[in-house]
């Protein structure tokens, strides 16, 4: 077990280091702001005093490394700073804490992504597995062409087609997925139906193709041919010989696609005006509300890193070479 443990620890260390560097990149982006930025935020009429005060608040008067560690320290305590919006030239400040803006929306996004994953992951694994097993049949070709078309299509195209049919022509679902904290679960599910369906279509296509490729790759191993020549039936080959070696590639496929899902929500949230973190980020980018952008970017990156880390750890704990060292 020691080999497994040390490999996991190494991988964890790498994950933390990556997160650290990523946070540094995200942080240093604020230093790249053009000089006139304070004016852009506060307006042309800003007085010298308000500008200086604002710069001081941003900590632009301190050296960058100091600011970075202060920032990391407060982020670790859940403090992402204060939003840029709501300020004006006179120095009046009605801005809100970034955390208060981000948190409720983060839960909404996780809800949407979770609902999608629950449908998409099993469906994609099933389609990918069957396409790999019955490869080069008509079934395989149809599934292949359909998924190739889907992955080539922008998310918003899929979204608007669904809206056209299921919200406009036959209004079964709402085209606006506006929910808030008071919305009941059943109502929530009803409202996120179209965004979740859009995401499902996109994710299933990607994931099914990757699953198919991973399984076909596995089935080309000499030990699978050996199993055939030992008289194993098709189901035995899959369950007994391929599956125990398939966890690592399958975990990688799932993690990759969940990570993709997290990013894919941005566009879909905007189409359906869903109050998630993606839409928040796009709004913040448009209004150049840097603290909010930073917070969102950090959350997205952390999710991404965490998912890949999980996949790698699943790969490690199912690797017989590590489980049973020489």
């Amino acid at each position: 077990m020691n080999a497994v443990l040390s490999t996991i620890l190494k991988r964890l260390g790498l994950g933390i280091a990556t997160l650290f560097v990523v946070s540094a990149i995200i942080f240093s982006s604020i230093s790249m702001l053009p000089g006139d930025f304070s004016e852009a935020v506060l307006g042309q009429a800003a007085t010298k005093e308000t500008v200086t005060a604002f710069r001081k608040e941003l900590g632009l008067d301190k050296p960058a490394p100091v600011r970075y560690f202060e920032w990391v320290g407060s982020v670790l305590q859940g403090d992402f700073g204060t939003s840029f919006s709501g300020r004006n030239a006179s120095g009046q400040d009605r801005s809100r804490q970034v955390v208060d803006l981000v948190m409720p929306r983060l839960w909404n996004t996780l809800f949407l992504a979770g609902v999608t994953a629950l449908i998409a992951v099993p469906l994609a694994l099933f389609l990918g597995l069957t396409a790999a097993l019955y490869r080069n049949t008509a079934y395989d070709r149809v599934v292949n062409a359909a998924t190739l078309t889907t992955i080539s299509t922008p998310e918003f195209f899929v979204a608007y087609i669904l809206i056209l049919f299921f919200a406009s022509l036959w209004p079964v679902f709402p085209s606006l997925a506006n929910i808030d904290a008071s919305t009941a679960l059943g109502e929530r599910l009803y409202r996120v139906a179209l965004p979740a369906l859009t995401l499902t279509l996109v994710i299933v296509a990607h994931m099914m193709r990757m699953t198919r490729a991973a399984i076909i790759n596995l089935l080309a191993s000499p030990y699978i041919e050996m199993a055939r020549l030992k008289g194993a039936s098709r189901s035995e080959i899959i369950l007994k010989h391929a599956l125990p070696n398939a966890w690592a590639p399958i975990a990688t496929v799932i993690a990759f696609n969940l990570a993709y899902l997290v990013v894919g929500v941005v566009v879909v949230e905007v189409v359906f005006v869903y109050p998630g973190i993606g839409q928040l980020m796009v709004d913040a980018v448009t209004s150049r509300d840097i603290p909010v952008v930073q917070a969102c970017a950090l959350i997205f990156a952390a999710t991404y890193i965490l998912l890949n880390l999980t996949a790698d750890i699943i790969g490690i704990v199912t690797n017989p070479r590590l489980l049973h060292p020489r």
């Binding site: 990523v22 997290v262 990013v263 980018v285 840097i290 997205f300 990156a301 890949n308």
Partner: peptide, 13 residues
């Protein structure tokens, strides 16, 4: 490790 759409959004801002 940073999703490229997110990274692009950040840099564009």
């Amino acid at each position: 490790a940073i999703p490229s759409l997110i990274f692009a959004l950040m840099l564009l801002s």
